[in-house]
Simulated assay, not measured.
Amino acid sequence: MLAHLILKDGTCFNGFAPLGRGGGGEVVFTTAMAGYQEILTDPSFAGQMVCMTFPEQGVYGVHGDLDEAPRPWAAGLICRRLTLQPDHTRALGDLAGWLKRHRIPVITEVDTRALTHHLRDAGAQPGLVWTEADGSLAGGKAAAAQLADMSGQALAGEVSCRDRYELLTPGARFRVAVLDGGIKGSILRQLSAAGYDLEVFPWDAPASELTAPRFHGLFLSNGPGDPDALPGMRKEVEACIGRIPIFGICLGHQLLGLAFGGRTFKLKFGHRGANQPVLDLATRRIEITAQNHGFAVDDASLPPEVEVTHRHLSDNTVEGLAHRRLPVFSLQHHPEASPGPHDARGAFARFGRMMEAFHA
């Protein structure tokens, strides 16, 4: 079925909707060459239609061990070509069939290079996959113009778990409370591999539960949406500071920045991909990281007792924070991912050393 990708600013890209389904969300791009299943199931992509800059998608099909969540959270997939017959001996099926089962819109045959250039120049923005069955192009443009921007959207409650649950590790050294704002399965696996028992709490859990005496540390997860639209979550995180060692990633990093008294702001087109260079200011070591975020912490707004520990080498934005006295640190990127070498995974061991020192 013929379709258009219509951006809020009125720009249109021709394409084809092989599943015959339209939809909408913030249109963003990722520079990852692979990992489409992990991307589509990452809760941090909730409310977003993802443009894959690599032209061919679905080559290795879908696999049972690649999901970051039990279901896809991305609002849609935008790509140049979609392989219908995957070439992998362990594939459980093809990407198109998987998307259809989960009712995820997809548009193919899009000039993804031109779309990426436009998003870089004009910024990430809402858009629609508008099929020929949805009506006239003029009607699609009118509908796209009314779409809500990502700023101000509180999405953590939509993707978080509903009830507390445990993940136990044989011989665990520490018990960690996890505040779930949209956590990825790979992050939970890395925390378990580091030797921690985990209790995962919904996004609106109070500080009194997160800092209960049985916990040695608190982990703040990744997640979607605007961190500034989560004042209740920020308030509870603020109440935890100084009471327990804290490690935050992505949304958790941004919430800590807000809890410290800082501000966050929306990036023009965000950082999304498996090849983002980050400088560790202490070691001067460059880490190649995986990232997925559209908001950043404003370092000029932070108090003197909070130091910037990492910088993004493309735009000098904040990639890591640490309190100068208290056992609290955070990273904007996703250290559990594997864009090549496991450059940033040492953060999980650092969390353990912090808990060990605090409880000595």
Rank of each mutant, 00 (worst) to 15 (best):
G35K: 08
G35D: 09
G35A: 10
Y36R: 02
Y36C: 11
Y36N: 10
Q37F: 06
Q37T: 08
Q37N: 07
E38N: 04
E38F: 09
I39M: 03
I39P: 05
D42W: 01
D42Q: 00
P43T: 09
P43R: 09
P43G: 06
P43Q: 11
S44A: 14
S44Y: 03
F45E: 00
F45D: 01
A46N: 01
G47S: 04
G47I: 00
G47P: 08
G47Q: 04
G47W: 02
G47V: 01
G47A: 00
Q48R: 09
Q48P: 00
M49T: 05
V50N: 02
V50C: 02
V50G: 01
C51V: 15
M52F: 15
M52K: 09
M52Y: 09
T53C: 13
T53K: 11
F54T: 11
P55H: 10
E56Q: 12
E56T: 10
E56K: 02
E56D: 14
E56A: 10
G58T: 08
V59C: 08
V59Y: 13
Y60T: 11
Y60P: 00
Y60V: 14
G61C: 09
G61H: 06
G61Y: 10
V62K: 01
H63K: 10
H63W: 12
G64W: 02
G64D: 09
G64T: 09
G64C: 06
G64L: 08
D65W: 05
D65I: 03
D65Y: 07
D65Q: 08
L66A: 14
D67A: 15
D67P: 04
D67F: 13
E68D: 07
E68I: 03
A69Y: 13
P70H: 07
P70L: 06
R71A: 09
R71F: 10
R71L: 06
P72A: 02
P72M: 04
W73Q: 01
A74G: 01
A74H: 01
A75E: 01
A75N: 02
A75W: 00
G76K: 02
L77D: 03
L77F: 04
L77M: 06
I78C: 05
I78P: 07
C79L: 06
C79G: 07
R80I: 09
R80L: 11
L82S: 01
T83P: 01
T83W: 10
L84Y: 04
L84I: 09
Q85N: 13
P86K: 07
P86T: 11
P86C: 11
D87Q: 14
H88S: 11
H88V: 10
T89D: 11
T89Q: 08
T89E: 12
T89Y: 08
R90S: 13
A91W: 08
A91E: 04
L92C: 12
L92G: 14
G93Q: 06
D94N: 15
L95A: 11
L95F: 15
A96N: 04
A96E: 05
A96Y: 05
A96D: 04
A96L: 15
W98Q: 03
W98P: 03
W98T: 04
L99F: 05
